[in-house]
């Protein structure tokens, strides 16, 4: 059981959700937007967080939308990982979804929850960093649109009360060649030691990483090296190790040295493979 009391709200519109959030914030009730609930429930049960209220966004149409509109794919924040993988609309995003938690949990975990939660890996961000995705927030001042690469800096940057409403992805990226590799310490289903997502755009590969540092990232400097095809895959992979923007994580899953060793080998293997694309 969850040993604390919190209030539960299920709004029908984004405006209702945001107004409720602002009111509860003013009442010092520490509200949280609630998608699939996996993280909020498990952390509340363990006493790691103490929300005074949760605002369930699963009946807000804008947060549940999942369709192609004009030249883009629109995914609501409350769309589940299972829906994303089953749809096959954006295969790279679906492949990443498939590697987060297990299938049953994927039936509950939402895109917004993975991007905005406390767990640092936020693996769904990688394909969005690579595909020039746009993110739509709804806040007290209405809709705010931003490039995902600007809005996601270590974590989602949101103004007080803002709700992550939708992600928009240009259709040109949906069917691009891609690669995704996730390395775990032991189990197939686990948080990543490191995951690498790669998307081919026109003539070059774009690459994003999760689990390597404290936050997922994409680095143009790294991509520049990786796309220098006159160098051997191993040469390029060795150069990349020097360009990791930040300290590689070191924890019980693997030391920073082990993660960097794995990065080099995995990238070299990946590049061997993508030379044929």
């Amino acid at each position: 059981m969850i040993p604390i009391h919190f209030e539960y709200y299920r709004p029908q519109t984004v405006r209702q959700a945001v107004e409720t959030y602002i009111r509860l914030l003013q009442e010092k009730k520490k509200p949280l937007y609630y998608g699939g609930g996996s993280e909020i429930i498990s952390m509340s049960r363990a006493g790691d967080i103490h929300p005074g209220a949760v605002i369930d966004i699963k009946e807000i149409p804008e947060c549940m939308v999942f369709e192609e509109q004009n030249e883009r794919l629109v995914i609501g924040a409350a769309v589940t990982l299972r829906q994303i993988r089953d749809s096959r609309m954006f295969p790279l995003l679906g492949t990443v979804s498939k590697h987060i938690a297990d299938h049953t949990n994927q039936c509950r975990i939402t895109l917004g929850g993975n991007l905005c939660g406390n767990i640092i890996y936020r693996e769904m961000s990688s394909p969005l960093l690579l595909s020039d995705a746009q993110v739509l927030f709804f806040g007290p001042d209405g809709v705010r649109r931003a490039l995902f690469t600007d809005a996601f800096q270590l974590r989602m940057l949101m103004n007080p009360g803002e709700l992550l409403m939708q992600i928009h992805i240009s259709k040109q990226y949906l069917k691009s060649p891609y690669r995704y590799i996730k390395k775990t310490a032991n189990e197939k289903i686990d948080y990543p030691l490191m995951s690498i997502a790669a998307l081919y755009d026109q003539k070059s590969w774009r690459v994003a990483f999760s689990g390597l540092c404290a936050s997922p990232f994409r680095s143009l400097k790294i991509e520049e090296i990786l796309n220098q095809r006159h160098l051997s895959p191993l040469q390029r992979a060795e150069m990349v190790s020097e360009l990791v923007p930040g300290q590689a994580l070191s924890d019980y899953r693997g030391s920073s040295q082990y993660r960097l060793f794995m990065l080099k080998n995995t990238l070299a293997d990946m590049m061997e493979e993508w030379e044929h694309v």
């Binding site: 609930g37 429930i41 049960r45 949990n105 039936c107 509950r108």
Partner: peptide, 27 residues
């Protein structure tokens, strides 16, 4: 486990499997 890991509490909601330890009753 009551943490969504073991699956012993799995039920079916609207046709899909879910772990009932990670669902609020009110939901």
């Amino acid at each position: 486990c009551k943490n969504g890991d073991c699956g012993s509490c799995t039920i079916i909601m609207d046709g899909w499997p879910v772990k009932s330890c990670l669902v609020l009753a009110v939901e």
